[in-house]
């Protein structure tokens, strides 16, 4: 069972990482990197690192890749793709999502009376707890340095991307 999961995740990670390098359009590269991030998160779950899997999805897929996509959309204006080319795909996807939402609504109305299953309380120290203890005791100083790195990166990014620091505000 473990082998099946590992080989699935490994195959998808290898394929999408090849696609990141091979595809011509940077938007497609970024999207295949998104798929790779999700599968790396799945690999973390099979390795019992659930907290890191959540962080991987939230930070990498949610923040870093969105930043990439913003810049790609901002810069590559002379890309030949127009909206008309992806109209059939968008239509198909829209119809599928609409049917899914409708089916979910119907299902939720019929099964509203079903009692919610009680979640089992986690026994023993969980993955997140162990990481938190290590992070705030042994690695407290590197943790503070990491926050300093983020601050410096934030200031540097703002200063670099500003138009001109001496330009008078109009």
């Amino acid at each position: 069972m473990d082998h099946i999961f590992f080989f699935y995740f490994a195959a998808v990670i290898a394929t999408t990482s090849l696609l990141v390098v091979a595809l011509r359009n940077p938007v497609f590269s970024a999207l295949s990197l998104l798929i790779m991030f999700f599968h790396v998160a799945g690999l973390y779950v099979t390795l019992h690192a659930e907290f890191l899997a959540a962080v991987q999805i939230v930070v990498y897929a949610g923040a870093i890749l969105v930043l990439y996509l913003f810049v790609v959309m901002l810069l590559s204006i002379k890309s030949e793709e127009r909206y008309h080319n992806q109209l059939p795909v968008a239509g198909l996807l829209g119809v599928m999502l609409c049917t899914e939402v409708i089916l979910l609504f119907i299902k939720s109305q019929t099964s509203r009376m079903a009692p919610a299953a009680a979640a089992d309380p986690v026994a023993g120290p969980g993955n997140t707890e162990m990481i938190g203890e290590a992070l705030y005791s042994t690695y407290l100083f590197p943790f503070e340095v990491a926050s300093l790195i983020l601050l410096v990166a934030m200031i540097g990014a703002i200063i670099l991307a500003k138009k001109d620091i001496n330009e008078p505000v109009q």
Binding site: I64, L67, A146, A153, M154, G156, A157, I158, L160, A161
Partner: peptide, 11 residues
């Protein structure tokens, strides 16, 4: 570090 690198690199 990856987040910081992305912010500065994209800027």
């Amino acid at each position: 570090v990856a987040a910081a690198e992305v912010a500065v690199g994209l800027a």
